[in-house]
Each structure stands twice: as C-alpha cells, then as structure tokens.
Design a protein around this nucleic acid. Sequence first.
DNA 1: GATCATAAAATCGTCGACGATTTGAAGAAA
DNA 2: TTTCTTCAAATCGTCGACGATTTTATGATC
Lengths: 261, 261
Amino acid sequence: MTQKPSAKPRKTASTAAGARKAGRGPARTDMAGIAAVDGGADVEQRIYQSVFDGVLNQRLPPGTKLPEPALCSLFGVSRAVVRKVLQRLEHDRIVELRPNRGAVVAAPTPEETRKIFEARRALEAALVELAVQRHSGKDIEELHALLHQEEEAMANAYQPAWAQTARNFHLRVAALGGNPILLAYLTELISRCSLIVALYEPAGNAACEHEEHCDIVDAISKGDAKRAVAAMNAHLVGLEERICLERPSSVKTLAQMLNLA
Amino acid sequence: MTQKPSAKPRKTASTAAGARKAGRGPARTDMAGIAAVDGGADVEQRIYQSVFDGVLNQRLPPGTKLPEPALCSLFGVSRAVVRKVLQRLEHDRIVELRPNRGAVVAAPTPEETRKIFEARRALEAALVELAVQRHSGKDIEELHALLHQEEEAMANAYQPAWAQTARNFHLRVAALGGNPILLAYLTELISRCSLIVALYEPAGNAACEHEEHCDIVDAISKGDAKRAVAAMNAHLVGLEERICLERPSSVKTLAQMLNLA
DNA sequence: GATCATAAAATCGTCGACGATTTGAAGAAA
DNA sequence: TTTCTTCAAATCGTCGACGATTTTATGATC
C-alpha cells in the first residue's frame, strides 16, 4: 500500500479515487464533480487542473471552501501533495490560503479587477510591440488559423469553447513576443481574467471581440506597431467595460455574496 | 518536544540552530554561515531570507546544492517547512528544484539574463508612465530622500548597501504606479537581476547609475512621461550593458562553471 | 591504471499521526 | 427569544518514518 513518486500504475486509484463520487450533499455548495476522468497521468497537475476548471466553469464559485481532507479522498493522495497544489494555486491567485482556516476560491474585488486589467494592458502592449518586430510569415498564418477557429466556436455558441479559443489567441500573440517571462506573467493574468469573466456572467459579445482580434492580427502583419498596440489596448479596454457593465447584481452574484460570509 | 505553529518561544533553537556553526568543511562550497542571528521571528521567512541573502552575497554560488536535511538541522525545523520554502524559492527562480535530485542555486544563462532585462524594461516603462500620472508632491520628496541615501551609500563604498538602496529606488518608483500586481512582478525581476549582478561581479559604476536615477526623478516631477520612460529605458539598457561587459571570464566565474557540473 | 559492476550512503517523495487552532452546535442564563 | 458559555467535531500545521531514487564509495576485471 505504499506510494511511488514516478508515473507508474498505482493501486491508489482503486483505493480512494473511486470510493466516493457524488454521494454526499452537505447543504452548501461543495465541490461535486471536480475529479475528472481519473487517468493515470500526473496526479499533481490533474488536481490543479481540476480545481482550475471547476472555478472557470462556475462549479466552484468564489468563497467555496476547499478542505484538504476532501481533496485527499477525492484524488486518493495524502495531504502532502494536496498541500503542495494548494500552495501553487495560491501563488496563481486562484485560491486564497488563510492560515489555520483553510483554502477558499478567490473572490476578486472590483478594485483588483481594475488593477488586473491595467496590468494586462501593460503586458500585452509590450508583447504585441515585440511581436510586431519578431513575427514571421508563418506566424501570421497560424494566427489566421486561430481566427478561423474562433469563428467556428462562435457558430457553436458554446461559451466555454469560445472563451478557450479567445484565450489561445491572446497567448499565441504574446508568444510571438519571444519573452518567456512576460508570457508567464501574462498567462497568470489571463487566467485571473477568465476567472473574473466567468464570475461576472459570460458577456456574449463574441462577434465584437472577434472583430477586434482580426484588427490586431492585421496591424501585426503589416508591421504597424503603433496601430497594433492601439488595437490591443482598445480591445482590452472594451473587454473590461463590457464586463463591468454586465453585472447589475444578477441572481447568481447575490448567492455568491451570501456564501462568501 | 512537540511543535507549535504560532510565534512562540520554542526550544528548537537550542536543539539544532546552535549545534553546528561552521565546524565542517567538506571540500566543495557548501552553506556555512547561512543561519542568521537566530531571532525568534517567523521561521519560514527567516529561512527564505537567509538563502536569498546568501545567494546575493556570493556565499552561495550558482549550482550550490541545498539538501533538505542540512537546512532542517540548520534551522531546527522539519522537512515539511523547508520543503515549502524551497518551493517558494523555486517559483521566484532563486533555486532550481530537480525532481528526486534536490535543490540547487539557480544559474541564469546569458539568454535568460537578456530576457529578464527585456521584461524588466517593459514593466518599468509601464510603471513610470503610471507614476508620472499618479505621483504627488510628497512622493517626489520621498524620492529625493532616497536619492540622498544613495549618495551616502556611495560615499561608504560598501557594495551590498549601495545595491540595496538602488533596489529600493526602483521599487519605490514602481510603487508610485499604484498597481500592486505589476509591482509584484517587478519585485521578482529585480531580485533576479540582483542575483545576476552579484554573479557577474559588482559593477562599481554607482555614480553613473545615481545620475540616471536623478534624471528619472526629474522627469517624473516635471510630469514629462515621454522623457521619464526614455530615461528609465536608457538606465536599464546601460545597466545591462555594463553587466554583460564586465564578465570576461573572471576567476570566480570559472570556479562556478566547475561546480555547476 | 582505467573502466565498469556492485554495494552502501545520502537524499527525495509520500504517507500517517499528533497537537493546536478554528468552526459549529448544544445548552444555560438573561 | 436572544445571547453567551461550553464542548465536540472538523481542519490545519508540523513532525517522524518508510520506501524509492539518486549519488558516492568500493572492489573486480581488462
């Protein structure tokens, strides 16, 4: 019944992961359906991704408690590994770790939201400027392919899929900048933005966003740094405004405020 | 003999911290004299700071192994807490954590160095621009006070103290930007830069740097965003160039390459 | 003497356990 | 009924231990 650190077939899956699936229901919003398909892949990353996806898909609203024992039995690991994942989630601002009081899903305030978008504008502006300098013809082709994917996702009208493609677009543009450090920071910020967007109800203006994405690609392909930066900034400002306007205290937000306690 | 999580007087200090000070000397560079004054303060932060300072002061050259058992006995804590600190140090790129092979002090490559400075230019440019918009008269006074501290540190000609004041200056300017997120990112980058500067020998051009700092403050105080950004950029480019030029394979660097293995 | 195989030591990853803190509820007093 | 006290359950922080991996030392072979 011992544990092996590497990627090998382990018996822990039969021990706990399949033990309880969705049996309990203790009144408040808890985390049912977090555990994914339970493949034999890297446990640590699987836990992280499960929580992350749960937050992004509203299954884990802000303020939801994430007790270590629950995660342990859900994923069939000891508290050591759960604890490590929680620490990483805290550093990425997905959860908040209160000393002696456990982890809860982070609840960004309006003030934080503003700062996040401000930081994102600064980073993406710098990165598109670099992208204009360093992009190649093949890069533009790939961006056009991404834009095409966006159109497909829009046609399907399935919000999570659209959000995913939009995220991909921004990350790909940023990758053209060729700076892994700035890219890592931006990845973090985009995650937090996605969290916020998911929180404040999906703003359905996909068509509008897609247009702006096209603008950005066009400016990059023409080597017009000034216009590329301006387009990116306008896009992000618009995104923030749409988010801020689209939350006149909806029903779901009220419930979230309640269990925030 | 149990452990208390809060800040209380504990007997561990007598158990291990005073056990070995600088007794051993196992051939290679190891970490003698890491443990600081051993105050009763927060253990976690103390370990972090000790390693950080050790790296900054060349006592822990890149590639130095940091075995968990050694740190445990040095600070009188169990591996759990040491492990947590190491994970944080890894995230801040101070150490590298190789699976099953332990932690070593990070050794930034020239390529990484370039990217770090590029990222830092992007962040500081954005932040000074914000600083120009948001600064008040009192802020300028405080900056002038910092500049005065720099002059004193220069007069003393004690490199670590000077580096500290220079770091402070940049962080204070960044703080004027009023964006905690960007400030946190920049803090991380400045730490890495300090590490690199310490690695590639202290470049003694303090007077030159100080002049440029004064330029930046002047531009901010006059509300000239364009010039402030330009001055900051020029300052950072100069800093990078001086670093890159000042390492024609010094004796110390060669030794570092050896124990890097 | 150098190279390779083997064994011992050191070190890492994970686990279960213990005490301490917090949380939640039951019961007494106003 | 409301509020406060007391107590039990849940949860967190830290520790020591065990197996697995890596590293180092030892000895055999060419």
